[in-house]
Design a protein around this nucleic acid. Structure first.
Lengths: 217, 217
DNA sequence: ATCGTACCGTACCATACGGTACGATACTGA
DNA sequence: TCAGTATCGTACCGTATGGTACGGTACGAT
């Protein structure tokens, strides 16, 4: 028990984390309104509402804490992708894009992430700041990453000039389409997409930005 | 009052439609759980719950009726797009794809459609058949349409062979990405995308499927 | 005119929810 | 050992919800 734990005893912290974890499970599984505080207490093994309201001012605050956590900590995602080197040649560019596309596709199709996406979109009207925070923390990073790689490659004459905003949206949107299908038709014999789907999209995308002008109107 | 109105008096029909319209507005605006039957009655100008429950067995049934309506009737969408001719040359293909892409982008960014999308994804776990019906009625049609155009063009040697599943997902996903942004960050100075965004994506897509094999690994 | 139906208006029911209060009890740190 | 605090267990409050019941009233077709 060093001085680094800012006054919170480990007992408090354990209870708080337990409530957070239980709330995360239920909120993501059932949504905000369909999850009662009683259900969260039961899931957390806590026997009194007073305990919950000692740590969170309201059900909304608990919800915000849960989604804030999920928005902040995306383990491995930023870590592996932020370290992608600037492209030296077409081969390196393809490799970086493939890595990114595979990682994004894998992340997006995880059950937790699907549920987070669903919850965010469902509650965005009632919690606008949560939706905005999620957007800038996750999807916007993907746009910046892919768009940055393409622009850098273009400046080094590795690929042709193009409408990179549209190109980026097409790659990420193509990956996103799998998540949307999962969200609308949950698990209905729709096996999760394989990494080669990401590879195929990178391939198509590079074909578009490496072709000479075609002269068609 | 001919024999063609199957027993329903016009009075009944008017009330029923009024309830449906009010429920549609509120369900799409606030979601299923946050919309009370009392609020629907007030919005419809109906003064007794008994009237509602004369036409709909439960709140769930009313919800299903509303979303079923919205899923079935997409005015102008199928009409204008189902009539797209099979492509004769690259010019005709581009024109058909541009028309389709613009129409889809416009449709997806309408407030009603955005709200429908949000509601469907939010409630898909609780109403799986509604999500599946919506998916096969709207997004799946877009996939079939674009994929069909591309495959037909490929068979006529207008464009090259390619992974058309991935290509189609990239075009529609690119358009979809605008709707997703709107859903997460509602109206936050994010002006709706202009039709030229659809044009740009068709352009990129055609560049990918008209380029010769590039020889890169 | 009359009869059946649709609608009104209101009251009601059982349940569930978010949140508070409070005395009793277990734990933890000095 | 002692004091403070975190948790327990339970009771409670006000409100809202989906759904039912019922007597009265407007309407529409024969």
């Amino acid at each position: 028990m060093s001085a680094s734990d800012q006054g919170r005893s480990s007992r408090s912290e354990t209870t708080r984390e337990g409530i957070l974890a239980a709330a995360q499970r239920l909120f993501l599984e059932r949504g905000f309104q369909a999850t009662s505080t009683d259900a969260i207490l039961a899931e957390a093994g806590v026997s009194s509402k007073e305990t919950l309201y000692r740590y969170f001012a309201s059900k909304e605050a608990l919800f915000a804490a849960v989604l804030g956590n999920l928005t902040t900590e995306q383990p491995g995602f930023s870590a592996r992708l932020a370290a992608l080197p600037p492209p030296r040649d077409i081969r390196a560019l393809r490799e970086s894009l493939t890595t990114a596309a595979r990682e994004i596709l894998k992340l997006m199709c995880q059950p937790t992430y699907l549920a987070l996406w669903r919850t965010m979109m469902a509650e965005a009207p009632r919690f606008p700041q949560l939706g905005a925070a999620f957007f800038s923390a996750i999807p916007a990073r993907g746009f910046t990453l892919v768009g940055g790689l393409l622009r850098a490659a273009s400046e080094q004459r590795i690929i042709a000039e193009a409408d990179f905003e549209a190109v980026t949206r097409m790659l990420l949107g193509g990956l996103l389409s799998y998540a949307m299908t999962e969200l609308l038709v949950p698990q209905q014999a729709t096996r999760p997409p394989t990494p080669d789907r990401a590879d195929a999209m990178v391939d198509i995308m590079l074909r578009a930005v490496t072709s000479q002008s075609d002269g068609f109107s």
